[in-house]
């Protein structure tokens, strides 16, 4: 891993975790992201909002190099996590993804037991020395994901047998089992009922203590409820980025205003 010393950002209050500069993403000839620069703070929930196809998910996927898996996708520009260029050729994407966990729209537990779902990541990254070590890691992750009390008596039953909300929390437990520093969430509640959504939102707020959380959401109310920073994307550009309170009371860009108030932009 490369060590670079960069002068501390101007925002002295919270430490910047992710720093993206002039990021452009193309799928073949189609430009999906045009020149996006953004600094994302540690221990903060940052929400990406914007209409479908605006590039918010594409940008999120740049942050743990998930776009590498798409052949025609080209990412240019700089993305630094903790002053380290994640697109540097010395960076191993698998190691990067252990540090930058991801949770998807639909809960996608492995067709394995609840225990094995959570143990999978620590196992492939060799994070546990023995069985009892692994049991601790799994319990810890399930506790952090607010799922332990519901599943502690049936860790051997299949993860796919849980309810949708429990499955999503299982996926969050799986993502945090490798002790990541950043959690990326791509519409984690869109397949869940309001109660399960509220539980996940409460969980996201707790996770903020230990992680930098970046969430893509279509629900503006969700962004308003759980995030401290909001970024509005439109047609591949970052239109406005600021404190969530300001974005939802007095946004400075008319396009942000049109979108969040439900007007035709």
């Amino acid at each position: 891993m490369k060590d670079t010393n960069v002068i501390e950002g101007i925002q002295t209050m919270t430490q910047q975790k992710i720093s993206a500069k002039n990021v452009q993403v193309r799928y073949g000839d189609v430009v999906a992201i045009k020149d996006v620069s953004v600094d994302i703070a540690a221990n903060t929930v940052t929400a990406f909002i914007g209409p479908s196809g605006c590039g918010k998910s594409t940008f999120l996927r740049c942050l743990n190099r998930m776009n590498d898996t798409i052949d025609i996708c080209r990412v240019t520009g700089d993305i630094h996590i903790d002053d380290e260029d994640i697109y540097d050729r010395n960076v191993d994407p698998v190691q990067l993804r252990a540090k930058v966990g991801m949770v998807f729209q639909k809960p996608n537990p492995f067709p394995k037991s609840i225990f094995d779902n959570v143990a999978y990541g620590p196992k492939i990254h060799g994070l546990a020395r023995n069985q009892s070590d692994m049991a601790d890691i799994v319990e810890n992750a399930l506790r952090k994901a607010a799922l332990w009390n519901e599943v502690k008596d049936r860790l051997d039953s299949p993860g796919t047998g849980l309810s949708g909300g429990q499955q999503q929390r299982l996926c969050i437990a799986r993502a945090i089992a490798t002790a990541p520093e950043i959690l990326l969430m791509d519409e984690p509640c869109s397949a869940l009922d309001p109660i399960a959504t509220a539980q996940i939102e409460e969980l996201i707020d707790d996770l903020r203590q230990n992680y930098c959380v970046v969430i893509v959401t279509h629900s503006m109310q969700q962004a308003a409820r759980i995030s401290q920073k909001t970024a509005f994307f439109h047609l591949g550009s970052l239109v406005e980025y600021g404190d969530t309170g300001q974005i939802f009371t007095a946004p400075s860009d008319p396009r942000t205003e049109s979108y969040i108030t439900g007007r035709i932009g």
Partner: peptide
Amino acid sequence: MTNEHIHSAFD
């Protein structure tokens, strides 16, 4: 910005 909401009842 247009002044019309998508939900016209809101207007």
